[in-house]
Amino acid sequence: MKRLLREFLKGITIENPTFRLALGLCPTLAISTSIVNGFGMGLAATFVIVGSNMIVSSIRGVIPSKIRIPSFIVIIATFVTIVELVMKAYFPSLSKALGIFVPLIAVNCIVLGRAEAFASKHGVVRSIFDGLGMGVGFTFALVLISTIREAFGNGTLLGLIIVKGFEPALLFILAPGALLVIGILMGFINHVTER
């Protein structure tokens, strides 16, 4: 049990995919304009990571190692397609806001990275927990970045105005703001951990 908890926690902290490993940055920057988008993206990616980790680890004895990458890709792409269709049917506005970044989860380096580095070598239960941890860590990073961007760039949190009279800096919800926020956050985390 303790080991499972450790698998879960490492994705959020020491192996956080966004801040520590710098993986999967493309969607992180592109859709973190509002908290809702960031959270939705995080959930979708978590589902794909957990699902693909589960399948990959359960058939890891069957796949010949030469064709393992293509077969991982097929598994991942299948889960992404499920997410795409479900999102389009039940959350059309979110699906529209995330745009091409939903299909792009398929080439997110976190997903393939976990399948190759962890799930293909470990048991099903541990892989599920690893996937959950990575997914939650990714979601956490997304929500953190999108909170900052929404607060500064739109003056709101979850759509509610925070301070009356605050004039939001449009830059933060545009492209330069995303790069700025991630750069400063990474520098800040380096600064804190280097002590």
Binding site: E167, L170, L171, P176
Partner: peptide, 8 residues
């Protein structure tokens, strides 16, 4: 440019 983009 920061200002121009932020508060046009």
């Amino acid at each position: 440019v920061f200002l121009q983009i932020s508060w046009p």
